[in-house]
Write a protein that binds this DNA or RNA. Structure first.
Length: 343
DNA sequence: GGCCAGGTATAGC
DNA sequence: GCTATACATGGC
């Protein structure tokens, strides 16, 4: 049975699912979600009508965009559960109760963010499962989005628990316990030893104490504190910690700084960027795409909060997405201070 | 073969 | 606290 969900604000399903904030959605019928050619105008990649398959908690869901909202269908196991409010579950996952118009009016005060929003309207943050989000972003460490998808799917198979809609069979993402006592490195050689080891270690830690990933608890404190705590997991630094806080723990002002966001920020007015203590100013390092220290990433996040406001994380997602198709490599020799980029 | 990918940990200053 | 470097794998 297919059901409808009304969405009365900008909402681009394909963009929100495929841009690389989450890694387990697939187009139904395709073997894989292929990387889009983001450089083309939106008409080129907006699928409109195609079904997507994703696993939310225990359930398999298919969704597709329709005029005025979206349609969805679920597997039998979910259809039989009358205690589950699927529609509300989807509204929560897609953050449809966020007032995206209000978000836009906040973050588009910055002209660079404004351009990004105008180019990719309807890009939404998602509210992901914290443990899956954390494991996924450890996989994403210095890896392509495509490769990350493969690794996350391999971890999912560890649960050995499948759900299906028709021919579409997917795996439920395993609880930390399964991963903690698995040989992940053997299951996924492509993941690499260090990432596999970190994920297994984190799984054990979360199995013993899931409090750092508790959404309700995180909601009560400043995002900077949430991020700092996640930063303590092995193989997790400021960037991954910020991603989890933003995309799973409702810290909408968390601001992950990766290569792309750093490149995008270079286009912003950096006059208010703190100088930093190093030989080069923080602004210079950003303009020249030099590596930032952990402390400097936190300084940039604080700058972003001051500049973009309480929804700085939304601004960051638009900047991430906007930077990628431009594919401008770091400054490349025209930086008077640093010379050729060395990142 | 070289460069790149939604970074992090570590040694050395 | 900052800088440079190793790390591990696959795609182009």
């Amino acid at each position: 049975m297919t059901m409808r969900l009304v969405v009365d604000q900008p909402f681009d399903l394909a963009l929100s699912l495929e841009m690389g904030q989450t890694f387990r959605w697939r187009r139904v019928g395709d073997e894989d979600v292929r990387d889009r050619d983001w450089g083309h105008p939106p008409e080129r990649w907006r699928t409109g009508g195609g079904w997507y398959s994703g696993v939310l908690g225990e359930f398999l869901v298919h969704v597709r965009q329709m005029p005025g909202g979206m349609e969805y269908r679920v597997g039998d196991e979910a259809g039989e559960r009358e205690d589950i409010d699927l529609e509300q579950g989807l509204r929560d996952y897609f953050r449809l109760d966020d007032d995206i118009t209000a978000v836009y009016s906040e973050i588009t005060r910055d002209p660079v963010v404004k351009r990004a929003v105008e180019q990719y309207p309807g890009l939404r943050l998602l509210r992901q499962d914290p443990w899956e989000c954390l494991a996924s972003y450890v996989c994403s460490r210095v890896q392509s989005i495509r490769g990350t998808r493969g690794d996350v799917e391999t971890i999912a198979r560890l649960s050995r628990r499948t759900v299906r809609i028709g021919d579409d069979v997917r795996h439920v993402f395993p609880a930390p316990m399964f991963v903690a006592h698995s040989d992940l490195a053997a299951a996924d050689p492509g993941l690499g030893l260090s990432r596999a080891r970190d994920i297994v270690t984190i799984a054990g830690s979360v199995e013993r104490d899931a409090l750092p990933l508790d959404r309700a608890g995180a909601g009560a404190e400043p995002s900077a504190d949430v991020v700092r705590r996640l930063d303590g997991y092995p193989g997790v630094g400021p960037k991954i910690a910020s991603c989890v806080a933003l995309m799973a723990l409702d810290s909408l002002d968390a601001f992950p700084v990766d290569r792309w966001v750093q490149r995008a920020i270079a286009k912003c007015d950096l006059s208010e960027m703190p100088h930093g203590r190093g030989r080069r100013s923080l602004a210079e390092k950003i303009e020249c795409s030099l590596a930032l220290t952990d402390a400097q990433q936190y300084q940039v996040a604080a700058w972003a909060r001051a500049r973009f406001g309480a929804y700085a994380g939304y601004a960051g997602q638009y900047l991430f997405h906007w930077a990628e198709p431009h594919k401008e490599r770091a400054v490349r020799g025209d930086c008077p201070v640093c010379g050729p980029d060395r990142r």
